[in-house]
Design a protein around this nucleic acid. Structure first.
Length: 266
DNA sequence: CGTGCTAGAAAAATTACTTCA
DNA sequence: GTTGAAGTAATTTTTCTAGCA
């Protein structure tokens, strides 16, 4: 059955093949996984996925889609609202939504899948922005500290010289005793960055080593959670993959903690 | 209890189509 | 009319998990 250069689902084609029909009306491939090459499969693409859906009178008789159609603004609006409430789709809700919108349940499921993917992409972009600005801020703080350090060092030198000029015994508070600054500013910043990230990631992120501490669902982070935050009409408040990483770029003092290596020079 | 298998769901990757500048 | 980019519906592949023998 071909329309507009597109082959539609042929129920007989699946007999004896490894295409399975699942209870929820979605098809998957098992066993021989890559049954067709991408080229082949694109030629054989079917709009319908199950016999149930195929034989649904409304569609079988009159609505075989010839081309991909955009959803109407009303349909999208309702889907968006539904997504905001809950970004995962239980079968019951899928059916209800599909009926309400006059769509196939499969279409609703696909829309939710794509919507979750879009949400995730946006979220990654937001996370990147947050991390970058935090990094920039830390970097400039470091720069300030380096300058301050240099200034203090030269002050010590000049005071020493004055003391020696006056012949004060034991006036040997050498500036050389101060720890040298780490040579590679970039590496130090990177280290600082890395330490802080790891510290804070312990409140939840997908970007952790398997060997590292296992993260449970403790926060707003996307990955460990079963639920996506409802958001994203472009005006969201941006729940992060990270748990407020670098929201405050200021160093945090914790009395019972070992001083961080990168701070020891100062 | 550990193991292998399977079904099912979702994510990830990709394709194909539409729209618009 | 053509072209390329962006957006998105739909498909395919991969990954993960739960249930069962």
């Amino acid at each position: 059955m071909m329309e507009s250069g597109r082959l539609f689902f042929d129920p007989t084609a699946c007999r004896g093949s490894n295409m399975l029909f699942l209870g929820n009306g979605e098809n998957i491939f098992r066993g021989g996984r890559a049954v067709m090459s991408m080229e082949e499969s694109s030629k054989r693409r079917s709009f319908f996925s199950s016999q149930d859906e195929l034989f649904d009178e409304e569609y079988f008789d009159e609505q075989l889609p010839e081309k991909k159609r955009r959803l109407s603004p009303e349909q999208v609006h309702l889907l968006e609202k539904s997504f905001e409430t809950e970004n995962k789709l239980e079968p019951e809700r899928k059916t209800q939504l599909a009926k309400k919108l006059g769509l196939q349940p499969r279409q609703v499921a696909v829309w939710f899948q794509n919507r979750r993917a879009r949400w995730k992409t946006k979220q990654l972009e937001r996370d990147y922005d947050v991390l970058k600005s935090s990094y920039d801020s830390l970097y400039s703080n470091y720069d300030t500290l380096v300058k301050e350090h240099e200034k203090l060092k030269s002050e010590v030198v000049s005071l020493n010289e004055k003391l020696q000029a006056k012949g004060v015994a034991g006036a040997d508070i050498s500036a050389q005793k101060t720890e040298p600054l780490p040579g590679d500013i970039t590496n130090v910043s990177a280290l600082q960055f890395s330490v802080k990230v790891e510290d804070r990631l312990s409140c939840g992120s997908a970007v952790v080593d398997e060997d590292g501490p296992q993260i449970l669902d403790t926060g707003d982070s996307y990955f460990p959670s079963d639920n996506y935050p409802a958001e994203d009409d472009g005006s969201d408040d941006g729940h992060s993959y990270f748990c407020n990483v670098f929201v405050a770029a200021e160093p945090q003092h914790q009395e019972d903690e070992e001083p961080l290596e990168w701070l020891e020079w100062s």
